[in-house]
Design a protein around this nucleic acid. Structure first.
Lengths: 333, 333
DNA sequence: CTGAAAGCGCTTACAG
DNA sequence: CTGAAAGCGCTTACAG
């Protein structure tokens, strides 16, 4: 079932069939009518792959992610998808790429299928990758430390985390401890750095204390257990993401501590779940779906005009969303 | 940058280039070596689109969904993706199709791009669609009332909902009310039907009471407010999905009622959030990710062998996951 | 083992 | 307005 079949049946050339399929004006109404009828009757659907080989255009963009688990990614995809749909673009998804080699392979396999790439590679060594994998395809990085040459949109982990710690300090907490994300993760690194910097600025004299986590609820639970047993006890804990904060909440409760009375807890991301836990979690809202949408918009702009202006990389600064879990401490110290 | 460039540079024909790309054995080692070097030097990446036009094969499958919002879909996609990755398949995503026409258009646009289709169309009138949209592409439906001719995998909403209501009754609840999902939605319809049937079986003489919802938290909240005010008060509420149950929980708490002491609540789906709300939500675990994975496996089997055995449509019966929200009522009535 | 040629299903100058 | 032909970038019988 191809254009030839339609052409033969309608007694025209494939060129004319192609013209009506693509809505070109230069086809006589009766001819067009006849072709349309045959298309209808034969239930003909053009072969999108062949079409894009011929036109060198495609309506798909590749989305390469390290993982697909959890609300962070579902929000991200939702935002990307909404923007893509508005522009009639399809999404070609590729996920779970542990290392750069795997990711590079995934990107290669997308050559000729997509008009551009949205890439999330939250590892510290992304810069080199951005350069090397760089075929001529437009790409925009999300939340990755891409080189300056690559457009990117990011959650400003550093800015958001400083704001969060500052908020905690403004509530009177001084012994603020941190549950860090996985080593080697860019966002985790930035949030940790922000914690140290803001603690030094807002609570001079207070030594930073860091519990190593990996963004999982379980690691938050483990850290929470340590914190509950720690002496002197922390006033508040700032977890590098919401899932760890939620795990911490559970550990604290299990240890018999009451949040926020005994210790305050704050997370980062504002995943949908954050407002449903008890106490509702104070966190920094990352607007993840917006990030995804912005990334796609930027990519679409570069696809439409590859030599267009180098947009400054956009950055979304998460703002504290104050709920119940962080409380207020009288007098500090 | 094409096979021709590589061929010219390596002083061979494109046929030989193609042979080494595809790992065919009949290339002399020195020739192969030379070609490999050129590929490396030129950083050549084969054009996947052209390749699949030529071979009439593709490594992508289309995934057509009505929406992308919420944990149900993220779990579904996660399951599909995991299975797809294991088989080296890419996912071409298309979402937010309100009606069948839109969905049919999306499916058309995927012709020639994908080897098969995974379709979720949770509307009552899917059967006709399955037949009409039916090009020669293998497709499997998820949670849709496809015709018998179409393979499908489904959550057994009816079976799971009966089990849930039966569980509530076994806990001593008798005045069990239902918060229904949107009209016209197949799962919503099945859960409602199961509620009526099981209530009649387990609690003879108790009149069914249904609050209309639409699967959103807000509609669950509204229903919860009605239930809190209802007299005589319900013993327990069975919501057609978790988000509505969670909304209901909030409304009940706001009305000053204590769950499960004053009224029990149960949901359906077991979204990840269900165990984090307080009280933790009793619900029916739908194994959504498994459903997605099973759907992809079935599709892959049909792609590999289109004339293979008609697998019986698989059905996943959700089982009650008992947490804190449904309690136990002494003596019933 | 290697190459010339046809073909996958479309689109698009170029003529007429 | 319409058609014949070349071409998009690959693969694969078919010869040699």
């Amino acid at each position: 079932m191809t254009v030839r079949d339609v052409a033969r049946e309608a007694k025209v050339s494939v060129a004319s069939v192609s013209r009506v399929i693509n809505g070109h004006p230069n086809v006589l109404p009766p001819t067009r009518q006849r072709i349309l009828e045959v298309i209808e009757r034969l239930n003909f659907v053009p072969h999108t792959g062949a079409r894009s080989l011929s036109t060198r255009r495609t309506q798909a963009v590749g989305v390469v992610l390290p993982d697909l688990y959890g609300e962070f990614f579902s929000e991200l995809i939702r935002g990307i998808d909404a923007a893509a749909r508005a522009r009639g673009l399809h999404l070609l998804l590729s996920s779970a790429h542990a290392d750069l080699d795997e990711m590079a392979a995934a990107i290669r396999s997308m050559r000729g299928l997509v008009a551009g790439l949205l890439i999330m590679a939250p590892h510290l060594d992304t810069a080199s990758f951005a350069a090397s994998a760089g075929e001529a395809l437009p790409m925009v990085f999300m939340n990755s430390r891409a080189g300056d040459r690559q457009p990117s949109v990011s959650i400003d982990s550093y800015g958001g985390a400083r704001a969060m710690v500052r908020h905690l300090a403004s509530r009177g907490h001084r012994r603020i401890v941190h549950i860090a994300g996985p080593e080697g993760n860019f966002d985790a690194h930035e949030r940790l750095r922000a914690y140290r910097d803001e603690l030094a600025a807002s609570c001079p004299g207070v030594a930073p204390r860091v519990h190593q986590g990996d963004f999982s609820e379980a690691s938050g639970f483990a850290a929470g257990a340590e914190i509950a047993a720690g002496k002197p006890r922390a006033h508040a804990v700032f977890a590098a993401n919401d899932m760890m904060a939620i795990g911490c909440l559970a550990a604290l409760a299990q240890a018999g501590l009451v949040v926020p009375r005994d210790v305050g807890v704050a997370g980062f991301d504002d995943i949908p779940m954050a407002r449903y836990v008890r106490p509702a979690l104070t966190t920094a809202r990352a607007q993840i779906a917006d990030l995804g949408a912005a990334a796609l918009e930027e990519l679409a702009a570069r696809i439409d005009d590859p030599d267009g202006p180098e947009h400054a990389s956009r950055s979304f600064v998460p703002v504290p969303v104050v709920r119940e879990s962080c409380g207020t401490r009288k007098g500090g110290r």
